[in-house]
Write a protein that binds this DNA or RNA. Structure first.
Length: 465
RNA sequence: GGCGGCAUAGCCAAAUGGUAAGGCAGCAGCCUGCAAAGCUGUGUAUUCCCGGUUCAAGUCCGGGUGCCGCCUCCA
């Protein structure tokens, strides 16, 4: 079985063959840092994290670039409203973004280039396009002339003649002075609403269009042609389509070989919106006391091309699943003695996991393989047929697969406080004396403080509630 | 108007045309001083509806219904 991904370009699953053996250039569209990111955004970033981790697990050296969009219409509007500079706003939300991805256990990209640090590269790219006759100027802005790129539409599979102009109801005609409404801006001439946000360049005073940053930065760090480009489905058109147009017209080479897009997230079955009161940033959820890894689980556990329903019941289920795995690990750590070394069973589980994941990241199948394994090993531990080496083998397997999922990790190594431990031992003494009233009282008291005691043959086990 | 996606148990969610995974919740039992954890058993699932192809359809085809996405700057 080979690794296969659904490529938006062909609308079919294709065997994954990177351009250079063993190496993958990965570009993922990052956030516009004008606000806190919401969980829909993180659905995409968690999907991309899973993709990257799995590629690494399969032995590829992944070079991952994620851009930060730090100049854009909404951002400029935010600056005006808050009367703050562009840098002040973007610095704040960039930091929040990095905190959030750490919270969710997302492995950082190799580099997070910001658009405003790459104005020169964008200018150069626009000049190449201009020299090749793909642009025109109108009132100081520079537009890409779509009619010069016959391949336009190959990603989104849309027939330009069939599209209803303004079908989305989002076109503000005042903003557009293009010859054809679908021509997009490479460079936008300054106007007074832009305030202090502008660059004096040989293309004039203004700022870059949105799409050009991804072309300029991906090509700078990954080359004219690279392997995988990701984003949410809403980016397919026009953003990624425009990136292809700009990039391929400039270089004459294929831009990205594979395009992977994740579906949207809905909350409790409904589109997330502020008016429905179901709009959540990551911070909104953690402030409610929801465990970050349970959020990661929910975002991860649905196949990336399926709409993901973020339901609070599902969050609770995810938390229970996390605990089941943690308890399993704790149990394994207490296994002593001789028995089965589980080498074969562990290999079987890993093979089932890989087989599922190779098929376009079928995470549900992968998780099922792990739960099958857990139930099987728990049974064997009950029977006392697992050796200490076998238990360690199982733990090592979880650690290895945790490199992919990020949700199989051991509990936070929060040391049980000495006084809590002392009470647990006191309860144990009471139990030995058959003083169950005292024992139960201590257990109840500790539970109220957030500690759970489980009696095992090895003595009491104390864990966080 | 154009293009596309989705519909599987109370909830989440898989399934090359071949007995409908897995998790959570629930119920019963084992274990336990009692619990917890674990194990076992437990859901007769009209796979949205109606047709069709096939020895065989959740899966393929046609037609409905419902929800959703994109169609100029939303992951």
């Amino acid at each position: 079985m080979t690794l296969r991904f659904f490529n938006t370009l062909s609308r079919s699953k294709e065997s994954f063959v990177p351009r250079e053996e063993g190496k993958v250039g990965l570009y993922t569209c990052g956030p516009t840092i004008y606000n806190f990111a919401h969980i829909g955004n993180f659905r995409a970033y968690v999907f991309e994290d899973l993709l990257k981790r799995y590629l690494q697990f399969r032995g590829y050296a992944v070079h991952h670039i994620m851009n930060l969009t730090d100049v854009e219409d909404k951002l400029i509007r935010t600056c005006r409203e808050k009367n703050e500079s562009l840098k002040t706003v973007t610095a704040r939300y960039a930091q929040a973004f990095f905190e959030d991805i750490a919270t969710l256990g997302i492995v950082p990209a190799d580099r997070y280039p910001a658009a405003t640090d790459h104005i020169d590269e964008m200018i150069e790219l626009i000049k190449v396009l201009r020299d090749k006759g793909h642009t025109y100027e109108s009132n100081g802005s520079i537009y890409f002339r779509l009619s010069t790129f016959p391949g336009y539409g190959k990603l989104s599979h849309m027939d330009m003649d069939q599209l209803q102009q303004g079908g989305s109801g989002r076109v503000d005609s005042d903003e557009y002075e293009a010859e054809n409404a679908r021509d997009f801006a490479l460079w936008k001439a300054w106007d007074e609403d832009d305030g202090e946000v502008f660059w004096e360049t040989e293309l004039g005073k203004g700022r870059p269009g949105w799409h050009i940053e991804c072309s300029a930065m991906s090509m700078k760090y990954l080359g004219k042609s690279f392997d995988v480009h990701c984003g949410g489905v809403d980016n397919v058109f026009p953003h990624h389509e425009n990136e292809i147009a700009q990039s391929e017209c400039a270089t004459g080479e294929m831009f990205s070989k594979y395009w992977l897009h994740c579906a949207h997230l809905v909350v409790e079955g409904k589109k997330m919106s502020k008016s429905l009161g179901n709009f959540y940033t990551l911070r909104d959820l953690t402030e409610k006391g929801i465990e970050p890894l349970a959020i990661r689980w929910v975002l991860l556990a649905t196949h990336y091309r399926q709409p993901n329903n973020f339901a609070f019941d599902a969050v609770e289920a995810a938390k229970q699943s996390l605990y089941r795995i943690r308890d399993f690990r704790m149990r394994l750590q207490d296994v002593r003695g001789a028995g089965d070394d589980l080498g074969e069973r562990c290999a079987e589980c890993e093979a089932a996991f890989v087989e599922a994941m190779d098929d376009d990241l079928n995470i549900s199948g992968g998780l099922a393989a792990v739960f099958d394994f857990i139930r099987d090993i728990n049974r064997r531990v009950d029977e006392g047929t697992v050796s200490e080496a076998g238990a360690q083998c199982a733990i090592a397997l979880l650690d290895r697969l945790d490199q992919v999922t990020g949700v199989f990790s051991p509990p936070q190594a929060d040391e049980v406080p000495a006084e809590i431990m002392e009470q647990a031992l006191e309860r144990q003494r009471a139990r030995r004396n058959k003083d169950f009233a005292t024992a139960d009282a201590i257990r109840k008291r500790l539970e109220a403080d957030g500690w759970i005691i489980e009696d095992t043959s090895e003595g009491p086990r104390v864990k966080r509630a």
